[in-house]
Amino acid sequence: MPLSEEELRLLEQMERALVEEDPKFASTLRGTTLRRTARRRAILAGVVFVVGIVVLMTGVISQVIPLGIVGFVIMLVSATVSLTAIRGQAAATAEPRATGHPSGFAVIDGGRGARLRRPRRSGAGRSGQSHGSFMERLEERWRRRRDQNGGF
C-alpha cells in the first residue's frame, strides 16, 4: 500500500531532521555512503601504492637507501589501508539485508552476524595418545624412540 502525500512529506521531514541531528547514523542507515567511502579509500590506497613503488624504485636506482625504505613503508601502509577498505566494503555489501525505500533509507533486518566459535579444550582432560596436544605427542614419540634404542 503506497504512502499518501502527507505521509511522504512527514517522512522526508523526519529524514532531514535525522540527517541534521546525527549524520553518521543517517549514513549508516543509507548504507551506500559507507560503500562509496570504502571504494574510494581502496582506490586511493591503490594509487598511493603505485607512488610507493615509484619512490622505492627511485631510491634503489639512485642508491639512496632511506628513500627506498620510505617507499617500502608507503607501499606497506597503503596495502594495509586497501585491504581494510576492501574487507569493510565486502562486509557492508554482504551483511545488511534491507528493504529499500525511494529516499535511500533502508530498514536493516540484521546486524553483523556473530561468528560461532568452538570452545577450546585443554589437553589435560583428553584421553588417548592421538588426542593429546602437539607437545604431548612429541614427548611420547621421544620416549618411545629412547626406549627402543636402549636409552642414551
Rank of each mutant, 00 (worst) to 15 (best):
R9L: 12
S122G: 06
R97D: 06
A114W: 07
F152V: 03
L83D: 09
G128I: 02
Q63E: 04
R126F: 10
S78Q: 03
P119M: 06
I69T: 02
R118G: 08
G68T: 02
R39D: 09
L67D: 04
A38R: 09
D109M: 08
R121H: 12
L116A: 14
I69H: 00
R112C: 05
R112M: 11
A79H: 03
P23D: 07
V51W: 09
G100W: 05
E6A: 14
I74T: 15
Q89V: 05
T32E: 13
S4E: 10
S127K: 05
I74V: 15
A106Q: 14
P23E: 05
L76W: 13
D147R: 15
Q13E: 13
G59N: 00
S103F: 01
E6P: 04
L76R: 02
E7M: 14
P96T: 09
S103D: 05
H101N: 14
D22H: 13
S103C: 08
L3A: 05
G88Q: 15
R36P: 01
S122H: 04
T99W: 07
L76Q: 04
R112F: 03
V19F: 03
S130M: 11
R35W: 03
F134I: 13
I43K: 08
G88Y: 06
M135A: 13
G151H: 00
R30F: 00
R121I: 09
R145Y: 10
I53T: 08
R16Q: 06
G52K: 02
V73G: 08
G100P: 05
P2D: 13
G104R: 08
T58H: 03
G113H: 10
T80Y: 04
R144K: 12
G110L: 07
R112I: 12
E140R: 15
P102T: 09
S130T: 11
R143P: 00
T28Y: 14
E140L: 12
T99I: 09
L18K: 14
T80L: 15
M135G: 10
P66M: 03
E5C: 07
A45P: 02
R146K: 06
R112T: 13
G151D: 04
T37S: 02
S27C: 01
G151Y: 00
G123V: 10
L67W: 05
M57Y: 10
E15P: 05
L18H: 14
R121Y: 08
L8E: 15
I53A: 06
T80Q: 08
T84L: 10
L44Q: 03
L10F: 05
T32Y: 11
A94S: 04
V54P: 00
G71F: 10
S103H: 10
V47C: 11
R39Q: 14
R143I: 01
V19M: 06
R141V: 03
V48H: 00
A91P: 01
G88K: 07
V73S: 13
A124G: 08
T99C: 05
A106G: 11
G132N: 12
I74R: 03
G125M: 08
R143D: 07
L76Y: 14
E21R: 12
I69D: 01
H101E: 11
L76S: 03
L44M: 11
